[in-house]
Design a protein around this nucleic acid. Structure first.
Lengths: 346, 346
DNA sequence: CTGAAAGCGCTTACAG
DNA sequence: CTGAAAGCGCTTACAG
């Protein structure tokens, strides 16, 4: 097997009879090259299939044009969609993406992950891991000054931290207000795990709306789930046991709502007459549940894109040695999608 | 703003009073360093937070320890799960992962993507893009000899191409045979888009089983969908129109099966008495559909892991300049998961 | 418009 | 057990 001949800039220069520097000028689209010289070099590049080695380029330019992305490894709708938005925008801004998925976001060794990314000389870091328990504690400990800009997704805004997040509290409020507007009064909620910031925010939104309506947000109307359909099914069982009069329920995500639907259907409850249901996420499947599910749509792809945009701005500013001012939080608004699980057909 | 001082191996060497080469020995865990020297260097490394620059290392070692992964950008269950398996195993074998997601896998510019990956000096490439139409044509055109090993996921095995795939045909057969075993005879199918290899394989499995049972696989029992729940709903409408006697249907994925369930429920068909349904994928939600969906589980995460394993073997072999023999296809078997949508409760 | 030379941060024979 | 020197493939002032 003949060794694969590596085509370097030196090889191209040799074949074209010019210096490596001139080849470099052509590759980088510098204007100051004589047209004939440029053409000759381009011909050699095409013929040999020369491909610049970006490692060498990054080394000398002290910048890799790569973003490090840390995300979670689950099949859940939210994380995978956010990642799609991130990748899309990273590509659009012609960066490369070094990916690191966490399998246990609540306990993962942050330092190891950051070191891996930083060893690769990423120009910036996107932290797309849900805020769970105190898995943001490391951000506070100030021995952890990142040498590159970073943007965090879906976390409680913190001083000096750039972040992009969906307003989950507004989402919870939208859901509950919608149910109130339909005339329901005894409205329960099944939340995500309450060590998740997002779950707490959705719960608070529900509380806001219920209190504003002059109703009491009795904790016996709240059940904590774990995002799975199974926990939704369990949750509604418990809720109905505690509150047999329950008229409606706001469920923290569509998967749990599916579990609620199953139990309601099995019990012969009419939806929404006997029990109205609102989910959260708007997965594509939600429109095909029986009945189709009213839910809160999150702009997940947009969140990913925006985060990349912000990071790109920070990287550019750093390159130009500009100061960027105080870190900001960018909020995105969810929206209500009304379907049959909450509105009695005329 | 003080410039962030880059800690290089030279800085460490200076502080520890040794040569850069000795520091390098410590970093790379070479044995031939005096214990005291090693300790002194390690102390400096820890104190300064030295982090090797892997770009420089890759440049000199002529190997990046990075795998390039090309996958599809959808929220579908299959692709995202496969990616999770890939990432997990890439990590386990302590490689890094450079990710490139396709948004239009049937038309995407393959050359541009490969160049991007190869410019980053990836040690190998994982092609986790579904085989659609002739989007594998470039593999045949022999001017496309890849300079690094590559493994393809879920494609029709080809000579000289390493691949890892689920036996979708066996899956289709399992599904149809299960329905036959339950006593159903008039069994239709709603397929994925037939320019997808996977969709065609599942259809063939259905045909195998139906023919083996001595039944005629009349094409009026087949409807082509597009993987979405909406197309499943449309599909079953058409199928019932053509074949009002239809007893059972094998649906090419769980999302389409959800659409089928919705229509069946709306029409008041009893499932499975009036219409039995089997899906494909076994998404977590499938157990919570009404009724819970019998389906074919694909070992997607395992497929991702296996592909990485194979690629790692090829990379290692190339490093050691071993010959690897002829390219092989690795088949993984799907399995039947029985739930209420196909079995009449006793 | 062009090129010789230095250097990014690391590793690797080689010599001692 | 240790180090001086060369070099991976590229870019960048600088000089002409």
């Amino acid at each position: 097997m003949a060794p694969k001949k590596q085509v370097t800039i030196t090889v191209v220069a040799g074949q074209a009879g010019v210096s490596a520097q001139t080849v470099s000028r052509v590759i980088n689209n510098r204007p100051d090259v004589a047209p004939e010289t440029r053409a000759r070099i381009q011909e050699v590049i095409d013929r040999l299939g020369y491909r610049p080695n970006v490692l060498a380029r990054s080394l000398i330019r002290q910048r890799s044009h790569t973003m490090g992305v840390v995300a979670v490894a689950w099949e859940y709708y939210g994380p995978s969609h956010t990642l799609i938005g991130i990748e899309k925008q990273v590509r659009a801004e012609s960066y490369s993406l070094l990916l690191d998925l966490l399998h246990h976001p609540e306990i993962e060794n942050v330092e190891r992950i950051l070191n891996r990314l930083l060893s690769h000389q990423v120009d910036g870091i996107l932290w797309a891991v849900p805020e769970i328990g105190n898995n943001r504690a490391w951000l506070e400990s100030d021995h952890f000054e990142l040498p590159v800009p970073a943007v965090f997704l879906n976390m409680e805004p913190k001083r000096n931290v750039w972040s992009v997040q969906v307003d989950n509290r507004a989402g919870g409020r939208l859901a509950a207000e919608h149910l109130l507007a339909q005339g329901y009064r005894k409205i329960g909620t099944i939340t995500g795990p309450l060590d998740w910031w997002e779950a707490r925010q959705r719960l608070q939104g529900w509380q806001d709306a219920v209190r504003n309506a002059g109703l009491i947000d009795d904790s016996s109307y709240c059940i904590e789930g774990n995002w799975t359909a199974a926990s939704g099914a369990d949750g509604i069982e418990k809720l109905l046991e505690r509150q047999p009069e329950l008229e409606a329920v706001f469920v923290g995500n569509d998967q749990m709502a599916l579990g609620v639907l199953q139990v309601a259907n099995q019990r012969g409850l009419r939806i929404p007459q006997d029990l109205a249901i609102v989910g959260f996420d708007d997965q594509p499947e939600a429109a095909y549940y029986c009945p189709p599910l009213t839910t809160i749509r999150q702009p997940l792809i947009e969140m990913g894109c925006r985060a990349v945009d912000v990071l790109e701005g920070l990287i550019e500013a750093e390159q130009r040695e500009e100061t960027v001012g105080e870190a900001q939080a960018t909020w995105l608004m969810p929206e209500l999608v009304v379907r049959e699980s909450s509105v009695i057909a005329k």
